[in-house]
Amino acid sequence: MIRPDDETKPFVGRWNSLIRILLVESSVKHVARAAMDYANLYDGTSCHPSNERLARETGYNERTVRKAWAAMRGMGLAERVSHGVAHRRLSDEYQLVIPESWQSLPVLGPSGAKFTCVHCEKAFNPTGNCKVHPDGRVTFDLIPMVFCPEPRQRKGREEPWCATEWDGQRRASGETPWSQLGQERWKVFHLARGEEW
């Protein structure tokens, strides 16, 4: 796999590698991949497809496309170069960017292997997500990336969820619970991923 920061490779290959390993909603990944079709292949500049066109090509509505752009801007993957003018049928222009801090984003490891639940140690596929705040910041819910998926409720029996069990054990032993870990959550994420770039 091409490393996203390997500048000896063309930008398009590095961009596609980063988007492939990024743990976010599929809508963000699809819009990012489609946007690359309209950017300069060598440096990611001159990207100005309309939201309507991206919506048509990805199958999402325009609101979802706008949210995807907001997520990409918040993660440092896209910089708005100019605002479009609707009555002149001009769309926003972006430069696609591979941020220097791409490893601090929630990404798969270099082999793309499954993650290991930090509680039960079973292998699972992490669920990506991101939330864009009104100020443009993007945050991630790391729970679905470090613990097994929450079990389905079945009639008459309730199975414990690894996240709840792990948190309960930490509280009982006097350790910091998940809600108070802060930036330490990323260490748990790296532990679940199990491999580094």
Rank of each mutant, 00 (worst) to 15 (best):
E100P: 02
F189K: 02
E100R: 14
E100Q: 13
K29Y: 04
N16D: 12
A86K: 14
W197Q: 04
G76R: 07
L105I: 06
C117W: 01
K155N: 08
M145R: 06
P151T: 10
K131R: 15
M145W: 03
R137W: 02
E184G: 01
G136C: 10
D167C: 11
N16F: 06
E121Y: 00
G194W: 11
R89L: 13
P106L: 05
M145F: 07
C148S: 07
Q183D: 14
G44H: 03
L191Q: 15
N61E: 09
R157L: 13
Q183P: 06
L105G: 05
D167P: 00
S179W: 03
P10D: 12
D141S: 13
A55Y: 00
C120Q: 03
D167R: 14
L23D: 00
R3M: 12
H119K: 09
V97T: 10
W69S: 06
G194E: 10
E100H: 09
L105R: 03
Q183S: 15
V138A: 08
N16P: 00
W161K: 06
I2A: 08
A32K: 01
R157N: 05
R73Q: 15
R171Q: 13
F140M: 04
R3P: 07
T45W: 02
P151W: 10
Y38V: 05
P4K: 09
D43A: 08
R20E: 14
P10Y: 00
S173C: 09
M1K: 04
F147W: 03
R66T: 07
R137M: 11
A192Y: 01
H48C: 10
E150M: 08
T164A: 14
C148D: 02
K187I: 03
S101W: 09
F189P: 00
P151L: 13
E184V: 06
D141Q: 06
S27M: 09
L22C: 07
L191W: 04
A55K: 03
H87V: 12
P110G: 09
A39N: 04
C47G: 06
M1V: 05
W102S: 06
E165V: 15
R193C: 10
W178F: 14
T127M: 08
